[in-house]
Every structure is written in structure tokens, then in C-alpha cells.
Computed example of a mutant assay.
Amino acid sequence: MTADELKIAVARAALPHVIPGDLLGVGTGSTANHFIDLLAAEKIEIAGAIASSEASAARLRGHGIKVLTLDEAIASGRRIPVYVNGADEIDPGLNLIKGGGGALTREKIVAAASDCFVCIADSSKCVNMLGRFPLPIEVVPMALGLVARELAKLGGVPKLREGFVTDNGNLILDVAGLKIAEPALFESELDHLTGTVTNGLFARRRADLALVSSADGVRALHA
């Protein structure tokens, strides 16, 4: 199977987790895009989608799917029972690195607001320890040099993502050279770096379920 076929297979496997008639959190990236397209093709009726990026919101609207802001969802008094999104890395405890598409802050916000986080990915994203994929950090522009210096002290090699600005108007530092043995603790440590908006570690709010595709099919991993 090609990489794209693996993404389509795992996106399709997530459809049974969608609750018809309810709200749905929707992520960002190539695998999430396949999920959006399949959601529309299968004509699964939902009350509305809360998107983690402007790109995903536009794709949902292009299929005629209603998009709500998180504030609108909260004001309605309804929960977000399921959030479906991809990942750049997944460890055995279902801790994740996300943010390859630059939407990590909004992705983390939607994850925090959702009852169940279903992660969809192909088997190439599974690792024994997080850090092979450079860890994205969203940074306020004024603090770029300061944050880069502090990340270097922590053993990372930060690199500015050239020509990229997040939906929030900030910059991304991609940090290579990390071996993240304790993801939740490191996530908290990074959160205290002045000038950061958030980091791409999803450990304190990890995935509840990971659907992972390979040539042998799709398997379910539980936290």
C-alpha cells in the first residue's frame, strides 16, 4: 500500500467513532483531510464540527459541513464527545508529537475540550521514544531568540520554520536532537518557557485511542 492509501484506510477506520447528531472535533493535516473527505462522502450527519485550523475549517465548509467555533460549542451547552486527528509521532503510551502542519495550539485546545481523542496515523509514526520527529514550538515573534536559546540549553537544536506563520500570527521553532523519555514532565517544563504559546507534546492530554494502519490492516491501540 502507498502512504496515501494507508492514510485513507485509517481515516475510514475512524468513521465508526463519529457520533451522528453530535458535535465533532476535527484535526489538521493530510490524514485529517482524508477523514474530512470520507465524513462528507459517507454523509454522516453531525451537529457541527470544531476545526483545529483555518485550513480544516475551509475544507469542512467546502463539503457543506457546518463549522462552529469552540466558544459557540461551549455556549450551546453541548460537549465534544470525539476529536479525530493525526500525529507526527506516537509512543507506546499514546503520547504524541504533533504540529508538523503548524496547528499545534488550536489542536491542543480542541483536544482539551473533547471527551475522547482518537488519533489516526500509519505505522511509520509509531516510535519507542518521542523525539525523532523535530518537536514544534509555537513562539511569540518577539521571543524567538530567547526561546531558541533556552531550548538549546535543554539539549535541543531549534530551527525556525522559514516562511511560516501560524493561524495565531506566531512563529514555529522545530527542535531536533531530543530524546523525550518523560513526555508529560517535559511538556510542562516547556510550557514555562516565557514567550512560548505551546509545544507539540500531547502527553498531559494524550490520545485515548490510536488507530494505526499498515499493510496488514488497521489496529487499535489503547492508552
Rank of each mutant, 00 (worst) to 15 (best):
A14M: 01
A14C: 02
A14I: 00
L15P: 02
H17E: 07
H17M: 10
V18R: 01
P20R: 14
P20N: 15
G21P: 02
D22Y: 06
D22N: 09
D22L: 06
L23T: 09
L23C: 07
G25V: 09
G25E: 10
T28D: 11
S30T: 03
S30I: 01
S30W: 00
A32C: 00
A32Q: 00
A32D: 01
A32V: 02
H34R: 08
H34I: 03
F35A: 10
I36D: 01
L38M: 07
L38W: 02
L39V: 12
L39W: 14
A41Y: 00
A41S: 05
E42P: 05
K43Y: 05
I44R: 04
A47N: 12
G48N: 14
G48V: 13
G48L: 14
A49I: 11
A49V: 13
A49L: 12
S52W: 06
S53Q: 09
E54P: 00
E54I: 07
A55H: 11
A55P: 08
S56I: 02
A57R: 04
R59L: 04
R59S: 00
R59W: 02
L60G: 11
R61G: 08
R61K: 15
R61S: 12
G62Y: 15
G64K: 13
G64Y: 07
I65F: 12
K66N: 06
V67T: 12
V67P: 04
V67Q: 07
L68E: 12
L68V: 12
T69L: 05
T69I: 08
E72A: 06
E72V: 03
A73M: 15
A75E: 15
